[in-house]
Nucleic acid binder design. Sequence first.
DNA 1: GACGTTTTAGACAATGCTGTCTAATTTTAC
DNA 2: GTAAAATTAGACAGCATTGTCTAAAACGTC
Lengths: 231, 231
Amino acid sequence: MKNSATPEKRSEGPTQRGQFKKRASILEAAAEVFCREGFAGASVDEIAIEANVSRQTVYNHYCEKETLFVAVVEDVMSRADQMLFSMLSTFPVNADNLEDDLVAFSIRINKNCFCNQDGKFLRRLIQNEGERYPHLFETWRQQGPGRIISALGALFARLSAGGSLKIDDFDVAARQFLALGNADLQLMLLFGQLPTESQLESAARNAVRTFLRAYGTEKLAERPQLAAVSG
Amino acid sequence: MKNSATPEKRSEGPTQRGQFKKRASILEAAAEVFCREGFAGASVDEIAIEANVSRQTVYNHYCEKETLFVAVVEDVMSRADQMLFSMLSTFPVNADNLEDDLVAFSIRINKNCFCNQDGKFLRRLIQNEGERYPHLFETWRQQGPGRIISALGALFARLSAGGSLKIDDFDVAARQFLALGNADLQLMLLFGQLPTESQLESAARNAVRTFLRAYGTEKLAERPQLAAVSG
DNA sequence: GACGTTTTAGACAATGCTGTCTAATTTTAC
DNA sequence: GTAAAATTAGACAGCATTGTCTAAAACGTC
């Protein structure tokens, strides 16, 4: 009874035993190649080679290129999702040292959500294929940015109620916080480059400083801005 | 002497007479298709059909798909460039009504640079092919965002000297101004959607309000923020 | 109307990619 | 060690695409 492993239409390939290493290796390689070449430009051969796997094995696990693509996107999204969750659940709310806390938070969210390989993948693929696979990214849209915004908004609401901030619209402030945190990095990110530690640091400092100038209460001393990121 | 119109390696196709309509039509269609499908996904046939032109005509004007792609990118970039120039050269510096002036400017720069078809094209293509064609986009990087930033920085320096603003680092402030102007629109832009007039308006209001809270001098009354953009 | 140029439709070879198939080989569980 | 499951290399058909070529048609200008 050969070919019993052939994946049916929506099956997920070899089902029973513990050969997860191949799957993981395929997913990882596929993410790399899809990110580099786009969906149309990526060839299954290239992915198989980069995964140290035969092409047939790829087709054993994922019946079509598109199935593989969807699996990769879902994999990256779920990783990004749990990363985001762990980040939001550990945010310190000390209120004293608010500036340093916000800087640390901005650095962490940039490093772990926007400025890593997964963030690059999602940005690129959503921008390219988002219109072609509306429902595939729609869930991410709600669970990713949507949850960041509302969690940040809730945080700002608490800080506002506690008197550390003075904010009218919490969601607007949340979007602005994220936008300011990317202000110095956007150009590099557009070109696919990832920032260094010190670029992350100075971008976050500049962002938080301006954010607190706009929304902070009168506790904050005025310090000079850091130098711009050349990127 | 047939085939005298065949483009040599770097020639630009049929040279003498006034058949610019075909060229323009090809460039327009190619921009559309490259933007929609990416470089690898776009077929020359598709472009020819969308341009109402035979495939051979495309090859008469541009000897390869890549030649056409470079021409399209340069065309879009030059259009974006002169649009940017006309925008920066007409900025009003009244200093009274600073808020409304900045709002109008933010709307105009978003509408004419980031949130139109050319902006969408450049964002998409740079993100996808930027690493593959480094020098092609490098000039844009300097002449596009670079000039916006420094022109805005210079403007802010003037306003700062005149006492309307209080800014430490003008380039940082310029980047932040642009980032704030996009804060409410980034998600739509990522998904390839273009904002409506009223979304542009409210995004700009929110941005300028926060910007002036951070950098304005004490002339500004406090008004409530507008509702968030749902897009 | 004549002439040179441009455009067109279609055929064409070369190439690369997708997805299938097969038969041999390796891995894994027990 | 054995048997089932998974992997491999390779060949393969089908298809789309790129870029070339040709001969006919359309165009523009004088």
